[in-house]
Amino acid sequence: MITKVDQPFLKRSVELAEEGLNKGDAPFGSLLVSSDGKILFEDHNHIGGGDATRHPEFAISRWAAENLTPEERAVTVVYTSGEHCSMCSSAHGLVGLGRIVYVSSTEQLKAWKKEWNIDAGRLEGLAIEDVIKGTQVDGPDEELSKQVKQLQARYYNI
């Protein structure tokens, strides 16, 4: 369940998504928060240069693996504007990060692309729970996901 404590971090993930969009990248933003509520790392998508693996959730996983103990990683929370793709879910699970809270779901993004006649792409678009086990996952946030839809529409020039 998404709580009031989660809301500022979710809003920040949407701000990061917009920052990425304004720099020519796909609108996705994420942050890693410690068990005491401190933002440890934040980033946005960087695929505009041609490397489609430069997702913020993947960057979070790499940063956490290099900078946190397994015990610290297990009690973190990742807040993200869009549900993890299978690559990012795998990275999250492999480094042992904690809870995931997302604004918009993979299913929402699929529906928006269908509505806009945008090709679904090569990936299946799996839910996080279809990729990793034992991780608490909460989302979507119905209100903030409207903002994410607007960012995605801008990205696709809708």
Rank of each mutant, 00 (worst) to 15 (best):
V78M: 07
L40D: 01
F58C: 05
N117R: 14
H92L: 11
A153E: 15
E71D: 07
I2C: 10
E66S: 15
K110R: 14
L126M: 10
Q150D: 07
D43L: 12
L144K: 00
Q147V: 09
K149G: 04
L68Y: 00
T3H: 05
L32P: 00
G50S: 03
K133T: 04
F58T: 13
G49R: 13
Y155W: 13
N67M: 03
E66L: 06
S35Y: 12
M87K: 07
N45W: 10
D141W: 15
I118P: 00
G96V: 04
I158M: 10
W63C: 12
Q108V: 05
G29D: 04
N45P: 08
Y155L: 07
N157H: 10
G48W: 12
K38W: 03
E142P: 11
S104Q: 12
Q136W: 08
A65M: 15
T76P: 03
Q152P: 03
G96Q: 11
L32A: 01
G49F: 11
K38F: 12
S145I: 14
I47M: 11
T3G: 06
E129I: 13
K149S: 11
E57M: 12
I39G: 02
G96W: 02
L123V: 13
L97P: 00
E72T: 12
Q147I: 05
T135Q: 08
G48P: 01
E143P: 02
V103Y: 01
I100H: 01
T69K: 12
K23Y: 15
E83T: 04
E124M: 14
A91E: 11
Y155C: 03
E15Q: 15
L109M: 15
E18K: 10
I118V: 12
G48C: 11
I2L: 14
W116F: 14
L16K: 01
G93R: 12
L68I: 02
K4Y: 07
E66T: 12
D43M: 07
E143N: 15
W116K: 14
A26P: 00
V137C: 06
G134Q: 06
E124Q: 15
S86I: 15
E142W: 08
G82C: 11
H92V: 09
R54D: 11
F41M: 07
H46A: 13
E115C: 13
I118K: 05
P27M: 13
Y156M: 13
L21T: 01
V78G: 00
G121R: 08
Y79C: 02
H46R: 14
A111T: 09
F28M: 15
I132L: 13
G49S: 10
E18N: 13
L68C: 02
S34D: 04
V131I: 09
N22S: 05
T53Q: 06
S81P: 10
P140I: 15
